[in-house]
Design a protein around this nucleic acid. Structure first.
Lengths: 219, 219
DNA sequence: GCTGTAAGCATACGCCGTAAGCTAAACCGT
DNA sequence: ACGGTTTAGCTTACGGCGTATGCTTACAGC
C-alpha cells in the first residue's frame, strides 16, 4: 500500500556515507551516489548536512569511536600498546580514513581517543612536556605505519604485478640492490618473516624508549 | 614579430606542475590550470603525459630526489638520522606530497631514496629480516610525524581559531581534560617547549631501539 | 614540393559540489 | 476545521573536473 519510506535524518545520512565509503571506497562517496543509496536526490541531503566536508568530518569521527579504550588498571605501556593496536586495526578496517587527512575540527570521537592516550602518559607520571612529545611520536608512528600498509595494499590491488615482475627479474638490481632486495621480500615473503609483526616491533621499541625518558626525566 | 613560444615537452609540463602544486596547492593542479600556466590548452598536455596520474607520479618522484643522501663514511645512526631529517624537511617544503598517497609505481627518485636508507641498515650489519622491518618502522615514523605537522598547519591556516577559543575557554575540560591540556600546549607554547624537537626526540629513540636489536640480534 | 607525422586545438561527455527556487506535505495555534 | 508557516524533497542550472575523439596546422625527410 502506502509506500511510506522512513524519512532522512542526519544519522541516516552519516551511516549510509560510512557504509558507502567502506564498501565502494571514498572515491565513490559523492553526494549523488550517497543520495541514490538512500533513495533520494542529491540536494535533499543538504537538509540534513551542511556540505560534503561535514559528511567527511562525521564519518571520520565515527571511525575514531571504534578505537578501544584501554583497561584502566593496566600498566601504562600495556595501555598505550592496546590503544595503538586497536587504532591500527581500526584504520585498516576503514582504509579511506587516513587518505582524508585531518578533518577541520576535532570531533568528540577524536577527542575521546586523544584524551585516553594522553591520559595514559599523564597518569604514569610523564611530565606535561614529555607527554606532549610522546603523544606526537606515538600518533605519528600509528598514522604513518598504517598509511604505509594501506598504500602497499592499494598498489597491488590496482593491477600492475608487472612492476613486481621487473623487480623479480632484477631490472633495478644494479642501480638499487637494496631496494630490489626489499621489494622481493614484499613479493615473496620468506616463511617466518611475517611471524614477527613489524608494527608491534616498532611500537614496543618506541614504548621502551619512552619508558627510559619517563624514569630519567625531569623533562 | 614571430611570437614563437618554446614548445612543450614532458619536462616542461612536469616542472610547471611541480611549481603550480607548490605555489597554489595540489587542489589547484588541474589539467586546465596547468595548461594555462604553460600558455596552452588542456588537451595539448596529453601529447606529453599519459594522464593526470602520470603527472602526479612524476612530481612526487621529483620531490623524492630532493632528499639528501647520507655521508658515506658516517656511522649508521648518523646516516639514517640525516636521511630522516632531510626527508622530513623535504616533505614539509612540498606539503601536498603526503596527501597524494603512494603513487602507483615507485619511480627512480623513490628507489634511490629507499635504496640509500636500506643500505644504511645492511651496511651496518642488520640482517635482511631486521632491515625489512627497520625500514618500515623508520619510514612509517617519518611519514606519519610529518603528516601530523602538515595537518596541524593546514587546520590553523584554514580560519577557525574559534575552535581554539573553545579549548582556551575550557569548553571540553570536563569531558576531555588531557586533550584540552594538549590543545592548549599547541595554542600557547610555553617558552622552551619547542626547544626540544619532538621529531628528533622520537627519531633518536627509534634509532637507539634499532641499535639494540642490531647488537642483540641473530634475527 | 609532397607527404607523413606530431603538436596543438575545439568540442563534447559524463562526472563532481552546490546555489536557487519550486512544490507538497506536515504541523501549528486558533 | 482551517489558514499559515515551516520543512523535506525535487528540479534545474552553473562552473569546475578528467579525458575521448577528431580536426588543423606546422614541420621533417625524401
Amino acid at each position: 500500500m502506502a509506500e511510506t519510506r522512513t524519512p532522512l535524518s542526519r544519522d541516516r545520512v552519516i551511516d549510509a556515507a560510512l557504509a558507502l565509503a567502506d564498501e565502494r571506497g571514498v572515491k565513490a562517496l559523492s553526494m549523488r551516489n550517497l543520495a541514490e543509496e538512500l533513495g533520494v536526490k542529491a540536494m535533499s541531503l543538504y537538509n540534513h548536512v551542511a556540505n560534503k566536508d561535514d559528511v567527511l568530518d562525521a564519518i571520520t569521527d565515527a571511525v575514531m569511536r571504534e578505537i578501544a579504550a584501554p583497561a584502566a588498571d593496566a600498566e601504562w605501556k600495556a595501555q598505550v600498546r592496546e590503544i595503538a593496536i586497536s587504532a591500527h586495526e581500526t584504520l585498516l578496517r576503514h582504509p579511506w580514513v587516513v587518505g582524508l587527512g585531518a578533518r577541520q575540527r576535532p570531533g568528540p570521537g577524536l577527542m575521546r581517543y586523544g584524551d585516553s592516550l594522553l591520559g595514559c602518559f599523564r597518569n604514569a607520571g610523564f611530565s606535561k612536556e614529555l607527554t606532549y612529545h610522546a603523544y606526537h611520536v606515538i600518533e605519528g608512528y600509528i598514522l604513518g605505519y598504517t598509511t604505509q600498509v594501506l598504500n602497499f595494499r592499494a598498489v597491488d590491488t590496482t593491477q600492475l604485478g608487472d612492476i613486481m615482475d621487473r623487480f623479480s627479474r632484477g631490472d633495478f638490481a644494479d642501480a638499487f640492490p637494496h631496494f630490489t632486495e626489499h621489494a622481493i621480500q614484499h613479493i615473496e615473503p620468506v616463511p617466518g618473516q611475517e611471524d614477527l609483526n613489524g608494527y608491534e616491533l616498532g611500537l614496543d621499541l618506541i614504548l621502551a624508549g619512552l619508558e627510559q625518558l619517563r624514569v630519567s626525566g625531569s623533562r
